[in-house]
């Protein structure tokens, strides 16, 4: 009897597993075609001198591409630009998103309007937003300088100065992206049970204390999620400098992904671009692992 039952449950298990795999199949197939396979190809190309114009005489050159990266000034500059962008954008965008979420969480008149308004940049194409901001940043005719001139601040070369261009792109990126994280924070805020605030009230906590000791801890998991997703998205910076500054002036806004794109498609050096992409993947992977470590320590 027991024997029979086991057999029965085994086939049932097998059948359930099979069903599971069938459900997984579409995702797995798509992931394989559009992610795993290209990654494999990229890894392979990174050891070759694949030049687009001569696809047939591609040869294996070992680690030459990777050696080339070491003394590639352009790569170094792009790397540090990307790090700078990420290090500034992540905290600023999180703070702005949280601030907006707190605002639109208040029971104010017209808050639906504000939620929509703050979210709207997210649904707009990044290309369009970049073009619009390019106009707004224009020193002589742009909206922002016009406003600054009212309060007596001279024209700022937002996108044409090597010192300001990246910061201008950061400001625009925060504006564009924060709405999305605002929505997630908002969901998080609404999940914090009211009784915690009531208890804090009874204990005589001030608004600030409530924020610090109830709201912030209540948002911990969501914050970690947002932290990780913004970081990875920030590393992938591409569209804004491509449209707004072409990586200039003096390469001050050239990001890693942009540099890889340029080498691969404009200079047609797919082998070298693949090697840089491999290095980039490893960098992002390390950052993600560190973040996960920090996250689990915090939880534990």
């Amino acid at each position: 009897m027991s024997q029979k039952k086991r057999v029965f449950s085994k086939t049932k298990e097998a059948r359930e597993a099979a069903t599971g795999y069938i459900f997984l199949a579409p995702a797995l197939i798509l992931l394989s075609i559009f992610l795993l396979y290209p990654m494999g190809v990229m890894f392979y190309y990174s050891f070759t001198d694949f030049y687009i114009l001569t696809p047939d005489d591609r040869s294996f050159i070992g680690l030459d591409n990777f050696r080339g990266i070491i003394d590639d000034a352009q790569f170094r500059q792009a790397f540090w630009n990307t790090v700078y962008f990420t290090v500034i954008v992540v905290p600023v965008q999180m703070a702005v998103a949280l601030g907006l979420a707190l605002l639109v969480n208040k029971k104010l008149k017209g808050r639906t309007f504000f939620r929509t308004a703050y979210f709207s940049p997210v649904v707009m194409s990044l290309v369009v937003v970049s073009i619009l901001w390019t106009f707004m940043y224009n020193p002589s005719e742009g909206l922002i300088n016009e406003l600054l001139s009212i309060v007596g601040i001279p024209e700022q070369p937002f996108l044409t100065s090597p010192d300001q261009a990246m910061n201008s792109i950061i400001a625009m990126s925060v504006w564009q992206g924060a709405g999305f994280q605002m929505m997630i924070f908002l969901a998080g805020l609404q999940n914090i049970p009211d009784h915690l605030y009531e208890a804090a009230d009874i204990d005589g906590a001030s608004t600030w204390q409530k924020f610090l000791h109830v709201t912030i801890p209540g948002l911990r998991n969501i914050s970690l999620f947002i932290f990780i997703t913004i970081t990875i998205a920030a590393f992938k910076l591409l569209v804004q400098p491509m449209i707004m500054t072409q990586g200039g002036p003096l390469g001050s806004t050239k990001s890693l992904v942009y540099h890889i794109y340029e080498v691969g498609f404009n200079y047609r050096d797919v082998g070298y671009a693949s090697a840089m992409a491999v290095v980039f993947t490893v960098i992002v992977l390390i950052v993600a692992i560190i973040q996960r470590k920090l996250a689990s320590e915090e939880r534990g």
């Binding site: 044409t160 100065s161 200039g248 002036p249 003096l250 390469g251 404009n266």
Partner: peptide, 13 residues
Amino acid sequence: TDAFAEIYNAASL
């Protein structure tokens, strides 16, 4: 051409 453009543009800085 990219190198040229980069230097040319630097003339404005």
